[in-house]
Computed example of a mutant assay.
Amino acid sequence: MKKSILLIRSISLLGLLVGLSFIVVAPKTIALHIAANNIVDSTGSKYMLLLEPALLIIVNEVSVFNLKRYRKNYHLTDAPIILVKEWYLISAAIVLLVVFGFLMYEQVTLR
């Protein structure tokens, strides 16, 4: 269980580092809403880029809570392996990291 929690939390940390790195290179205003034809409808402060990493951290912490509860309910707290359900949640966290990274990139580059 400790390995899967460490993986999920390190993905959260990586998402936060990606967000902070985009804040460093972002202009003062970024795109907040992009229409279907790549026209920016709304702009905002570059610090709004921290919303995606915050959402990633919230989702990952809910996943960690779910993993702990699952292992406790099925008496698997001492199992030294990463379970299939844990791999699903780890892969979902990676997918969210990639999607949020692409979204932050689009927000920074479009004006």
Rank of each mutant, 00 (worst) to 15 (best):
A92Q: 10
S12W: 05
A31D: 05
F102L: 10
K3P: 03
F100G: 08
I23S: 00
S21D: 09
L103K: 11
Y47L: 08
N66G: 13
L20R: 07
L56D: 00
N37S: 07
T109A: 15
I90K: 05
A31E: 08
V59Y: 08
T109N: 11
I94G: 05
L97I: 07
K2T: 10
Y88R: 15
I34G: 04
L55M: 06
N60T: 03
R71F: 06
K2Q: 15
N38M: 08
A26P: 00
G19S: 07
A35M: 13
G15H: 09
S4H: 01
L17Y: 10
I5E: 04
A54H: 11
M1F: 03
L50E: 00
T29I: 10
R111C: 09
S42I: 08
P27V: 05
S12R: 10
G19V: 01
A36K: 14
A31G: 13
V84D: 12
L97C: 04
I90E: 03
K68F: 02
M48V: 08
I34N: 02
F100H: 07
A54P: 08
L49C: 02
T77P: 01
F100A: 04
L17R: 12
Y47W: 11
V99S: 12
F22I: 00
Y47H: 14
T109Y: 13
T109V: 15
F100M: 08
L97Q: 02
I34T: 01
I30E: 01
L14F: 11
L83Y: 08
G101I: 09
L20Q: 06
G101E: 08
G15M: 07
L7E: 04
L110S: 14
K72I: 06
I58R: 06
S4T: 05
K2A: 13
A35F: 10
V84P: 10
N66A: 14
L6Q: 13
N66W: 12
I58C: 07
L32H: 11
Y74S: 15
A35E: 08
P80W: 04
L32D: 08
A54F: 11
A79G: 12
I30R: 01
S42Q: 13
K46C: 08
G19H: 00
N38T: 12
